[in-house]
Write a protein that binds this DNA or RNA. Sequence first.
DNA 1: GTGTCAATTGACACCGTGTCAAGTCAACCA
DNA 2: TGGTTGACTTGACACGGTGTCAATTGACAC
Lengths: 197, 197
Amino acid sequence: MSSDNIETRTRVLDAAVRVLEERAGRGVRMGDIATAAGVSRQAVYLHFATRAELLVAATRYLDEVLDVDRRLAPSRAANTGVERLALYIECWGHYIPDIYGVAKALLLAQDTDDAAAAAWKDRMLAMRHGCRAAIDALHSDGTLAPEWTPQNATDALWTMLSIQNWENLTSECGWSTRQYVNGMKILAKRAFVEEPG
Amino acid sequence: MSSDNIETRTRVLDAAVRVLEERAGRGVRMGDIATAAGVSRQAVYLHFATRAELLVAATRYLDEVLDVDRRLAPSRAANTGVERLALYIECWGHYIPDIYGVAKALLLAQDTDDAAAAAWKDRMLAMRHGCRAAIDALHSDGTLAPEWTPQNATDALWTMLSIQNWENLTSECGWSTRQYVNGMKILAKRAFVEEPG
DNA sequence: GTGTCAATTGACACCGTGTCAAGTCAACCA
DNA sequence: TGGTTGACTTGACACGGTGTCAATTGACAC
């Protein structure tokens, strides 16, 4: 039955997201996800050909659930570049903790799997567009610091906001989500904004 | 023969560094290193109990060869905090390409191996001291931007200068080493330095 | 009843790490 | 010269995780 089919598939995705979240994306085997979904290991392979495919599907699934577009709306509605930059960081900073487990697993799978690498690159490129939009907003306001081209500033901001950096700051430096958001706002504002006058 | 012993050991280390460099730290098996060293796979295990141990030894070996202390001397001799920060970034930015292959392998091994994780953490902590020293120099000059505590600024600078960030900027954004050094100098100066007056 | 289809069960191939035991070869030494 | 030592080789194997395959179960549909 096709609805049954779909149900099992989503149960697996749900379990994957849950268990990846729990274990921060590390050391999660296909069998673990199957068990968590209350299904045999082979049933998972009935729906996802490889581990990488499952991880990619889990990312998409999670994105749907979390409704990224809605979250980004405030940033898009900003009146100035400075405001847009701050709101984008705010949004991103609260988004990372929600996706961290799945993202980390995908990040790790990258090294051995090309499909995972492509999927990761794709996601990161999407995130880059947000950075670019914020920098362009500064630029057209005339408030982008003169040391930067929009291109270079985007590269730098994008890199600064990477998930690995979030990981380092929260787990090695003990920053909270709030501290992360504030810290990145300060860093980005000082680094990229030149208030005229 | 003990001199023979040492010779084989260093031949393996040498081969490891070479082959890790070549393949950017990815997909390098114990057998590959053995072959590159002109030695059997088991000979490698005669000198290094695990892959992680070999990677850690290779890092130390490379550090000896590259003479980190000498490289850091200019930065330590700086007269102002601003100068020290710039020189530290200069030094670090030229150091990363030399260690990237080995570092990347260690970084990847982290996920499955505790010894590798500890070694990586240790190296990164050493690098953090350099960041801390630069920030402290700014602080005692009274040129650290008021938004930052020395602690937070160190966290941020340390994170900014991570090898993953270098990787992203050079490989995804196409930055050269020179561009990296310049970009990071601009970013760090704008973010952390408040010129008095 | 019979066919269909998802899921289960258990076996197996593959790969890379790490282990083990037997054998080779050179240097050193009585 | 013949024996011991010690590094290295060779080939086999265990283990763990991924992915495959074939036979079987069980429900629902006609």
